[in-house]
């Protein structure tokens, strides 16, 4: 979404990368290239390392081996972290105090300006645009506590979008959200995808993202088990089901 690096087609490039916690690898030997405009769903059972992999890109889990480049820069030398927008898996936004939707979203811009500079008109415009993108502009001044789970998820997306990142990393954006809100959420993701936003979505619910995702990567026990189109993934699953059926018989 940023203009200066718009020419570079590779957004994320992993070569034999491994990530983990406290020096112990959770995912290993990952080769993965994400190009601009791709919407990639990252699937896999619980504990397969999906979250460790994406948080590794964000510098939240440890990078233990291989090379990781984001926008052509090695991860540990990436200064502007807001180039990767992060939508964490959180079920609630509220801490111990009240806050409005726009107060939460504007925290996404803090790292883009020096500590002594207050928010200016451009920052406020960016917050308004991000809220329009997720369809919450009319709720900008609401206490986040009064929003539904699905709406709070969209507040988190707006907070990640507000700094105009090159890639949006989302951890289970549709989990634990009721069906109607899931529809609205999928609409937002669809709108982002058509506007060319690169996305890496960790999910269990591929169905909710039908028509949005154009590539599927599956992790199993810390390794890549599949990388291809949604169509190919359906065939891969059918194949696996047949193999399992034969094994059982």
């Amino acid at each position: 979404m940023s203009t200066d690096d718009a020419t570079s087609p590779t957004v994320v490039d992993l070569r034999a990368a491994s990530f983990g916690h406290h020096g112990r690898p959770v995912v290993t030997g990952i080769d993965l290239t994400v190009t601009r405009g791709e919407v990639l769903a990252l699937l896999g059972p619980n504990g397969s390392g999906k979250t460790t992999l994406v948080t590794g890109l964000l510098g939240l889990s440890e990078h233990l081996g291989g090379t990781v480049e984001v926008l052509g820069t090695p991860l540990d030398r990436l200064r502007d972290r807001t180039r990767i927008g992060y939508v964490p898996q959180r079920h609630t936004l509220t801490g111990g105090v009240r806050a409005t939707v726009s107060e939460i979203v504007s925290t996404g811009l803090l790292a883009t300006r020096p500590w002594w500079r207050p928010a200016g008109r451009r920052d406020r415009d960016a917050v308004r645009r991000a809220l329009e993108t997720v369809g919450l502009a009319d709720r900008a001044r609401f206490d986040v506590d009064t929003l539904s789970g699905g709406q709070q998820r969209r507040v988190l997306i707006a907070r990640a979008l507000v700094a105009q990142p090159d890639v949006l990393v989302m951890d289970e954006p549709t989990a634990g959200v009721d069906h109607a809100s899931q529809g609205v959420l999928a609409g937002v993701l669809h709108r982002l995808a058509t506007s060319g936003t690169t996305m890496l979505v960790v999910t269990h619910e591929l169905e909710a993202l039908r028509g949005v995702v154009d590539r599927i990567v599956e992790l199993d026990a810390g390794h890549l088990a599949f990388d291809g189109s949604p169509h190919g993934y359906a065939a891969h699953q059918a194949e696996r089901a047949r193999a399992a059926g034969r094994g059982a018989a």
Binding site: L58, R81, I104
Partner: peptide
């Protein structure tokens, strides 16, 4: 605002480079 961001969501604050 920075204190607010860190107290509210430390993980996101760290990921965004604060």
């Amino acid at each position: 605002q920075r204190f607010f961001a860190v107290a509210g969501d430390e993980e996101f604050a760290r990921a965004s480079g604060l």
